[in-house]
Design a protein around this nucleic acid. Structure first.
Lengths: 357, 357
DNA sequence: GACCGCGTTGGTAACGTTATCAATTCTGTC
DNA sequence: GACAGAATTGATAACGTTACCAACGCGGTC
């Protein structure tokens, strides 16, 4: 069923039917009604593809995140989709799994699809693929992560400052053996960052941690920084190892949800008491953080707003806003709960870890 | 940059350039190279909109779920997106928030966009909008919920059987006061199902609960069935009320993640001991169920597989499979952990609930 | 009564690709 | 060297919409 069909059935010209059905131009009330009736009778539905063909707009947004299954990205996607929907746009989703090749392929596909805008949480460290999108007239907004050197709108959180402030709470409580557990891809030795996997977020958070230590005059110790990779079990074994080492930490900072989960798994396995044996602070609040005892203290980020803002900027750009791209930094909140405490008076012996996961 | 541009620049005819760039028909190695070089030089990228225009395929799948932020749907969406990507399709996302009007609007939009297939977790109880999609040549697969009367492929889990089996564990342990907490929309009195909000999943799960009770010869009691609505806080207050009532239940079954969260909130507030004061079983395993003590026993569903299967069926249908639509029922697994126990010898007095959430 | 202006109408040309089909060139064989 | 058959090539017609522009009718004005 096409416009010519409807026009014929309504006894009007194609152009007239097109105007009524497309909601543009003028038409008398009588013809409008006749066309609408004919359309209803024939079960006509606009072909958005043909419309996009000539209008140049597809009313879609491309969204590239690491993994929707991750609660963080799920919330961000929800924020994007809500704002987009309000502007009449729909979101097309792609998961990169932190693989820059997958990300590039997805972006290329989005360019070919002629999406009106692109939200990307970049895993890649270069921006050639994004520059291509921009030069194809597709505005791009970076989410969650800065890409140094790229002149793109970016929506992030003050990771460094947030972590510095949180870790400073540890140092002020007297802690000196403070470890960080992060989920960046592990390198060959299992603790270093793999080449090309230096996600901005992680780098910043670790930098914040270092700043806090420096400010407190605590010497840095490489073994207290654990890059475990994106699996809960890996974070668990890293913490298991860390907590059974001779000079174990008295405070743990986890930089993301996966790392937090694995860390708590390990502490539970070791029967470590929080905060009596170790204090813990996590990054990003999750639905279960108030469900465990003690409740977990966390750095909370406005994730949905982050996504919403990204979509909002995109909508503005699509509508022609030509301001210079800039970085938008949203504030985090430290939520003090029950997982932090003073340095333990003496090091209690922990239960030997069992093998299972 | 269009095919004519590339053709001109390469010194070949449009059709030849089109064949090379579109990857169909034949072309000599020499011309292929020349065209590809010209395309690269001009920065040509296929216009998928124009391609869809004539091919009739958009290589997209429409996905309508209640809320991606909900871990259940996030996992399902991930499953769909993965299988779709493998078949060269991308997923367009829409959240219905269990609002049938939103769902219908999204489906209409998807029809206009000419998506190649549609995955819907229906909130609506009629299927007129879905029938419209089907008659427009778009195959539809129902996810998570059956729509009685609709001749559509459906991918679900044996909710009734799973709940019956789980609740039977309660009855076999001697429990007779067993409550169900569900997230269906509350009616006027706060406990009844609102008209039009009878989500199949909920209905089935409650039916499974009833069957288990009947099989055990336990008389049904309306006050033990709580429909709380889609907010954690509502489930919490329902359980607070339930557990402070004179003849409180000794076992709780929660039918979804939100209800489980709210239920545990309430039990924690009341300082109720699990399973000494109450036994608890939840539906759908979440990442935190092994993080709480006692660990939560749950009915686990293969959510990602559910989504993957839905996408798989769709891909098959898109490629012309014409089999009669049927229902695919996947198996659940009961994971026994530590939140269930025998009926308490005596009813311990619980702490009075505080006001806060 | 002729003329102007405005709301309405319809024909037709885009948009950028794939599909069709005829024309051309190449390859191998007798 | 001629010929059949296959491979390659290019002109042109779709696809279904919106954009453009000319033509029409109607009321009001001089």
């Amino acid at each position: 069923m096409t416009i010519p069909d409807v026009a014929r059935h309504a006894g009007v010209g194609q152009a007239t039917a097109a105007r009524v059905l497309g909601g543009y131009g003028s038409a008398s009330a009588a013809t409008r009604e006749r066309v609408l009736a004919a359309a209803a009778e024939l079960g006509y539905s606009t072909n958005a593809v043909a419309r996009s063909m000539i209008s140049g707009r597809t009313d879609t947004l491309g969204v590239v995140v690491a993994d929707v299954e991750n609660a963080y990205f799920a919330r961000a996607v929800r924020g994007i989709a809500d704002v987009a929907a309000k502007a009449g746009l729909q979101a097309i989703l792609a998961n990169s799994d932190e693989d820059s090749e997958k990300e590039k392929a997805a972006v290329q596909l989005f360019i070919e699809r002629r999406v009106d805008g692109l939200v990307v949480a970049p895993a890649a460290t270069d921006d050639a693929h994004l520059a291509r999108a921009v030069s194809a007239g597709i505005p791009v907004v970076l989410l969650d992560r800065v890409l140094t050197g790229a002149a793109l709108d970016t929506v992030v959180v003050d990771n460094r400052g947030a972590v510095k402030a949180a870790v400073t709470r540890f140092t002020e409580a007297g802690h000196t053996r403070i470890a960080v557990i992060t989920s960046a891809m592990p390198g060959d030795d299992g603790t270093r960052l793999a080449p090309g996997a230096d996600i901005w977020t992680t780098t910043e958070r670790v930098a914040g941690y270092r700043q806090a230590l420096r400010a407190a005059g605590i010497p840095r110790s490489a073994e207290l920084i654990r890059h475990t990779g994106y699996e809960r079990a890996w974070a668990r074994s890293a913490v298991l190892e860390l907590m059974t080492s001779p000079d174990r930490p008295t405070a743990l900072f986890t930089t993301d949800n996966v790392a937090t989960l694995g860390t708590l798994d390990a502490l539970l396995d070791l029967d470590a008491r929080i905060p009596d044996d170790v204090s813990v602070i996590g990054f990003d609040d999750a639905e279960w953080t108030t469900l465990i005892r003690p409740r977990l203290s966390v750095v909370s980020q406005p994730v949905q707003e982050l996504g919403g803002l990204a979509a909002d900027i995109l909508v503005r750009r699509i509508n022609g806003a030509a301001a210079r791209p800039r970085r938008h930094t949203l504030n985090t909140t430290y939520i003090a709960r029950e997982s932090t405490g003073p340095v333990p008076a003496r090091t209690r012996r922990l239960r030997a870890p069992t093998g299972g996961s």
